[in-house]
Design a protein around this nucleic acid. Sequence first.
DNA 1: AACCTGCGAGAACAAATGTTAAGGCGCACC
DNA 2: GGTGCGCCTTAACATTTGTTCTCGCAGGTT
Lengths: 241, 241
Amino acid sequence: MSLLKSLLLNLGQHDSVSGEEARLLSSVITKEALFSTGDDIVAIGSRPIYSSLLVDGFAARYKMLADGGRQITALHVAGDFVDLHAFLLKTMDHGIVALSPCHVAFAEHGDLKMITEKAPHLARLLWLDTLVDGAIHREWIVAMGRRSRKSQLAHLICELYVRLRGVQRTTDWSFHFPLSQAEMADVLGLSVVHMNRVIQSLRREGLISWTHHTISILDWVRLQEVAEFDPTYLSMMREPR
Amino acid sequence: MSLLKSLLLNLGQHDSVSGEEARLLSSVITKEALFSTGDDIVAIGSRPIYSSLLVDGFAARYKMLADGGRQITALHVAGDFVDLHAFLLKTMDHGIVALSPCHVAFAEHGDLKMITEKAPHLARLLWLDTLVDGAIHREWIVAMGRRSRKSQLAHLICELYVRLRGVQRTTDWSFHFPLSQAEMADVLGLSVVHMNRVIQSLRREGLISWTHHTISILDWVRLQEVAEFDPTYLSMMREPR
DNA sequence: AACCTGCGAGAACAAATGTTAAGGCGCACC
DNA sequence: GGTGCGCCTTAACATTTGTTCTCGCAGGTT
């Protein structure tokens, strides 16, 4: 998919983006790169001078613990700015890893600063993008803290489906999903064995199928019920910001 | 504490705030209110036209689940903007409750928009404030997913201590903390009984004391070790943003 | 003084989740 | 065509965490 298109698919979900804004934004994206599965796109502790737009692929933010455990704190799909927050946070407090081959484009922080000075509406859309990240974080906290593991997984699948549909990465009720069960366990904060048990239970109830890196939602209504999924937090509504 | 002071204590931790910026910000804070313990400061589903600055007190963002469970997704202390994100997200996807008597001040969204247009550096500091929220969310996700409950609690206490010290709400190694164990359980995602067990274990090891709504850190070094606490994510470093 | 009530603490038991180990299956590589 | 490897799956067992219940204490009320 083209660089500009993935940009607009993402930011344009929340508010209308003018042609001029789109041109400005694409003009500050001066570099691109490809990453292989498992590569670090951004290293923990680094102080990037670029922010990275994921044009295609799957990536994750993660932290490692002393005992070797890994927790994934965010999943990113095509169209996501994976480290826009580093523009102001400066120091990466986590790493970002490619979970599939990833096509990434870069915008210099100096140019982002220019956008905050010259294009306030566009700047607000970028700010909003990081706010949606935060809203997703909060939903994950709720899922980890107070939902059953089955509900947590169901919720994540609902979220992924809606986000991927927003950037046209679904076909009917299916989407490509390259994560292994072990990687998924690092998302939900479970052991691999229990991750497998939870997946089995959604399968057994006929809610999803998940094979060959493809997830299919077999019963959206019941999946949503199990998840208590309410997509409000994704801010998919297009309105003035 | 004065309104302006709590503002500067918070934003000024990350970068220097000019006198003009401080005046502009305080000029857009046009209303104030007091809330009692248990009051909702902002209701879920509402579309606020003000963002709320917590001048004094403790507040929490939370979501309720169908089974009556509650998960607290953020704790706020003096100086925090509790719903700055609503400026752009528009619809509250969670509620905000006062966990103590709270003194709150309000800034109109229209004025915040003006700030993004006229005062880009100040706007970036506000953006940053929401990014630190996100960084804290990520750290909570890590703690919920991959730390032991003892480590999770130790980490939260370290975080609270550092944040409260930043706004001058600590005396030596102690701080006032009004949450009950049941409320704390809604933060960590535990049952009340297990919350109590985890607190006891930190007490038994001589790391903290916690009585009469006061937490004291008895052994900062070991508490930090148990928590694997690294304050980088709080962006306490003052640098150009 | 007697009586609430909210909160903290603890015991006993149930359920969820982790650990370790083993086997199977598909796929890349020799 | 075998072989090794990554990944999924299952089983058995250990540990963590939740549930229910009881008790005690402090503070406020009558």
